[in-house]
Computed example of a mutant assay.
Amino acid sequence: MQYTDIGIDLGTASILVYIRGKGVVLKEPSVVAYDRDTDQILTFGEDARQMLGRTPGNIVAVRPLRQGVISDYQITEQMMKHFITKALGRRIYRKPLIAVCVPSGVTEVERKAVEDATRMAGARDVRIIEEPIAAAIGAGIDIIKPCGNMIVDIGGGTTDIAVISLGGTVVSTSVKIAGDDFDEAIVRYMRKKHNLLIGERTAEDIKIRVGSAYPRPEADYMDVRGRNLVTGLPKTVKISSEETEEALREPTTQIVEAIHGVLEKTPPELAADIADRGIVLTGGGSLLRGLEDLIAAKTGINTMTAEDPMTAVAIGTGKYVEFLSGAGN
């Protein structure tokens, strides 16, 4: 039975499943809705995401992964089981080999938790791969060559920055500032500047539609609905991309500083390679407009985003599985 080797990008914001020979077959938000009274899981993924901030008291929509690590073991295990079954269909003759990626800064305990949850979810064998390596493979970089490549993978919960050469990580760091922090910064800004209380889904919507990390030639605008903190009534405010740049300045500056820190620790030969080849961005957070311009402006190094940054890690994890199991397996 083929198609049983799979790669999973177990992200804070979303889970992607890659099946050998088929590519990325599933992409769902890492959200689970369950009933507190009965302890019963109601739904997973997109259906559960729709419930975020909109549930009655007994139903909770939770994200079992926080900042790239498992915060609720049981729920993560059931979520993985659900998505693996959904991706493979019911007809599994043998358990799959599963490669899962983790942020480069995780501890042994956190790594073990991911491994155990994957085994319990039905894996025959588990391989753990570091996110920057998976992102580099998925972005189409030949990581085996003796030449420095810099990858910045901005996910939902963590940003992984690594310099890769000869198939391994030379210098890396993982900072707990990423897409979710962009959303939180927008929530804070709206509260402070406009006295408007908004939820994380609205904040994400603002980030996607008018979010910007760098001044743009022309401003974009959007209407935002929320609750007025003074009157307690619903209110609509028009906000511009210039305001989002101000709102996001703190988290984006922290990411740039982390990139700076990794460059400072990079051996000179590899630093010269990076200056030539540029910095590659992957992950959903890299879709924030103006981010590559900001990094290029602050580091003086040409910065580009991978072709499909959202799926790069999942594709890289899957390709890693193919590499492990060999073409003939």
Rank of each mutant, 00 (worst) to 15 (best):
I8S: 05
T12S: 10
L16A: 09
I19N: 14
K22W: 13
E28W: 06
V31Q: 03
Y34R: 01
F44V: 02
Q50K: 13
Q50W: 03
R54A: 12
T55N: 06
R66G: 07
Q67D: 13
I70S: 00
S71H: 06
T76Y: 08
M80T: 02
I84W: 14
T85L: 07
K86I: 01
L88G: 09
Y93I: 15
K95M: 07
L97I: 15
L97Q: 09
A99F: 12
V102Y: 00
P103R: 03
V106N: 13
E108T: 09
A117D: 00
R119G: 09
R127M: 13
E130Q: 14
I161R: 06
S174P: 11
K176N: 15
D180K: 05
F182G: 05
A185G: 07
R188K: 08
R188W: 04
Y189G: 06
K192P: 03
K192L: 11
K207L: 00
R209S: 11
S212M: 10
E218F: 10
E218A: 14
V237G: 12
I239P: 12
T244M: 11
A247G: 06
A247Y: 00
R249I: 06
P251V: 04
V256I: 13
G261F: 09
E264M: 07
D276V: 14
V280Q: 00
L287E: 05
L291E: 08
M310P: 11
T311K: 01
A312Y: 08
K319W: 00
K319Q: 05
V321T: 02
E322A: 13
